[in-house]
Simulated scan of single mutants.
Amino acid sequence: MIELKNIRKSFGEKEILKDVSAKMEAGKTNLIIGASGSGKTVLMKCMVGLMQVDSGQVLYNNEDFTAMDDKEKKPIRQAIGMLFQGSALFDSMTVEQNVMFPLDMFSDKSYRDRKKRVQEVLDRVQLKDANKKYPAEISGGMKKRVGIARAIVLNPKYLFVDEPNSGLDPQTSLVIDKLIKDLTQDYKITTVVNTHDMNTVMESGDHIIYMHEGKKQWEGSNEDIIFSDDQLLNDFIFASEFFQDIKEMRKMEMFRDKQWRKKAGGSSSNS
């Protein structure tokens, strides 16, 4: 689990993060959503240590990451996998070489074992016969899957994903969302996803944090969103008539779902 306690971050006189506290749960897809400028990207960068907080704490399994020096942070950093928005693959390396890069840097396994591990994760992200191809020779969706394979090759406890569906068509986006969710559940990873994609929110949002003007405005699941009366959240998620119709349809589906009603306590007051 990752816990944020009273995180503040400013650039000059502009305060970007304003006393943000939240928990990112293991085995769940934790989403950070919000409009551009809401602070979600800065929040993620503070969580992985790319930016230093002005005050507050980032705790990894109750260990204060913000209070550690570089040497103390190293074990946690090695337990972190990262999928960047543009995949950030090395153009001069093959798919296999890109995925093997973290193993070459941090693993003392033999070349044979490293290559075996690369093949395991490429199979896991459903990439066949792509080992010797270069990034310029594969599609955008395949690049994302290579990025995911590289992010999980060291068996991370924590996976950070920045806009996984950026530049992808809707069908490929669904594939990427499902892959991230499956990996999270199968390996009990604490996954944190920074996203604008509303399909990701509605289909993959086990735990969602909505940021608004540097503050945590709302926190809950994709089921909770359907029944939330937070006006700022509703204006952001269900801005169009299309998404408003989807909200009403999802409400009706959930009311018909006996298991959901049992989970919710069987009371309309929780809805």
Score class of each variant (00 low, 15 high):
residue 97 Q to N: 05
residue 97 Q to I: 01
residue 100 M to E: 15
residue 101 F to I: 02
residue 101 F to T: 10
residue 103 L to K: 02
residue 103 L to P: 03
residue 106 F to D: 01
residue 114 R to E: 09
residue 116 K to Y: 07
residue 120 E to S: 03
residue 123 D to G: 09
residue 124 R to Y: 06
residue 133 K to S: 09
residue 133 K to G: 02
residue 133 K to I: 01
residue 133 K to L: 15
residue 134 Y to P: 06
residue 135 P to C: 09
residue 138 I to P: 09
residue 140 G to F: 05
residue 141 G to P: 09
residue 142 M to E: 12
residue 144 K to F: 00
residue 146 V to P: 10
residue 149 A to K: 04
residue 150 R to N: 03
residue 152 I to R: 00
residue 155 N to Q: 07
residue 159 L to H: 08
residue 159 L to I: 07
residue 160 F to C: 14
residue 162 D to L: 11
residue 163 E to D: 10
residue 163 E to L: 08
residue 164 P to C: 10
residue 165 N to G: 12
residue 169 D to M: 06
residue 169 D to A: 04
residue 171 Q to I: 15
residue 180 I to R: 06
residue 182 D to T: 13
residue 182 D to M: 12
residue 184 T to A: 05
residue 184 T to V: 11
residue 186 D to P: 00
residue 188 K to A: 13
residue 188 K to I: 01
residue 190 T to Y: 08
residue 192 V to M: 15
residue 193 V to F: 09
residue 194 N to L: 15
residue 194 N to W: 07
residue 196 H to N: 10
residue 196 H to Q: 12
residue 196 H to R: 04
residue 196 H to C: 05
residue 197 D to K: 10
residue 203 E to M: 12
residue 206 D to Y: 10
residue 207 H to Y: 13
residue 209 I to H: 15
residue 209 I to F: 11
residue 209 I to D: 02
residue 209 I to K: 14
residue 213 E to T: 08
residue 214 G to E: 13
residue 217 Q to I: 05
residue 226 I to D: 07
residue 226 I to E: 08
